[in-house]
Design a binder for these strands. Structure first.
Length: 362
DNA sequence: AAAACGGGGTG
DNA sequence: CACCCAGTTTT
């Protein structure tokens, strides 16, 4: 694979850095970045927008000022602070990585790419971000923004997400990243993608490198990058039982791996009402009146959830695949992890209690 | 190499 | 509604 050389790396870095110095957004993790802050922000920013991350980042930093403080916190509390951010495995990895930094690196982050890469939740992108931004190492990185910018600049036509595309993008990024200010350069590339070289309406008139952008010169900026093929989301029908007892709400904890791993929710089972009734009965929960229904949409899944009230008959028994069932007095207090989906199910039954006609929200 | 993994903003 | 976001991990 021949590296494109129609764009001189030095000129490119100079133009991009000058633009970045004039147009960079003021974000809470910028300024004088330490490895802990960079790492925390980068984990949160994985597949998550800047505006969404900012309040979580500030809250985390206040609650866990150091990596040691985070390492000592209970996992359930960290999941509680993460609730609503999504991709909950990140929170579990965050906690495990904090403990690894304390146990294996004496409480300070390593600066070698391989050591960073070995931390849970840290892949090629995040390792490159920490190494370049926090430690000034000449390390490339490729995220969604960089992929789009480079695809257009060099007219890279491989569909995103393929190994061919990955190879070309990382090789290109590696060639461009300068010895001086590699962290600023990487952030500038991402900033350009986020604010100028946007997916739908690129503002080429504001782009500092438009004069040497191949896609622009060929009038193909809207055709690149070629998106990866998308699979239709699978549909899932679920029945949820909202059980209120004297000690609070009956919640179930999901298994650590997989969807909503480690989070709590009202017990729910897959399938139709008849099937759900039988399964829940085995766990000692009997289903009452229907309270409403919601549809919760994920990237690759559509959950149709019918919400019933429920009652415990005698003793509660295990309910697969949940790890544990327990009555919780203050589910949204932050002591445990609760997904937005679970909160919606709970709000349905709460709203329903005072206003019987309330159906689907949003 | 492909699929799983959340949630929300945007046009 | 479709797309996509400062990706990583597992299969």
């Amino acid at each position: 694979m021949k590296a494109p050389d129609d764009l001189a790396p030095r000129w490119f870095a100079q133009a991009l850095l000058a633009w970045f110095d004039a147009h960079r957004r003021a974000l809470p993790w910028r300024g004088s970045p330490d490895a802990y802050g960079v790492w925390l922000s980068e984990i949160m920013l994985q597949q998550t927008r800047v505006d969404t991350v900012v309040p979580y980042y500030l809250r985390f930093l206040e609650r866990y000022p150091t990596v040691a403080a985070l390492a000592e916190a209970p996992l359930d509390e960290v999941l509680g602070a993460w609730s609503g951010l999504g991709y909950y495995r990140r929170a579990r990895s965050l906690h495990a990585a904090a403990q690894a930094v304390v146990d294996r690196h004496g409480g300070s982050f390593p600066r070698e790419l391989s050591a960073l890469r070995a931390l849970p939740g840290v892949g090629a992108y995040t390792a490159g971000a920490i190494a370049s931004i926090a430690f000034g190492e000449r390390t490339p990185l490729v995220d969604g923004n960089v992929a789009r910018v480079l695809s257009r600049l060099f007219a890279l036509g491989d569909p995103l997400g393929t190994s061919a595309s990955d190879r070309a993008l990382w090789a290109t990024a590696e060639r461009l990243v300068p010895d001086e200010r590699p962290g600023d350069f990487n952030q500038a590339l991402m900033e350009l993608g986020a604010t100028v070289c946007t997916p739908d309406r690129p503002r080429c008139e504001r782009c500092p490198v438009a004069e040497r952008c191949r896609a622009r010169l060929e009038g193909r900026e809207l055709e690149l990058p070629v998106p990866r093929a998308r699979k239709a989301p699978t549909r899932l029908r679920l029945v949820a039982a909202v059980v209120r007892g004297p000690d609070g709400l009956l919640l179930a904890r999901r298994p650590a791996g997989g969807l909503y791993g480690g989070l709590w929710e009202p017990p729910m089972v897959e399938g139709g009402l008849r099937e759900a009734k039988a399964t829940l009965a085995e766990a000692g929960v009997s289903l009452g009146a229907k309270r409403g229904a919601i549809e919760h949409v994920l990237t690759h899944r559509r959950l149709a959830i019918v919400v019933h009230s429920g009652r415990v008959d005698g003793t509660i028994r295990a309910l697969a695949p949940y790890e544990e069932l327990a009555f919780v007095s203050d589910p949204e207090g932050g002591a445990i992890g609760l997904s937005t989906m679970a909160k919606r199910v709970l709000s349905i039954s709460t709203v329903e209690a005072t206003s019987p006609r309330a159906g689907r929200r949003r």
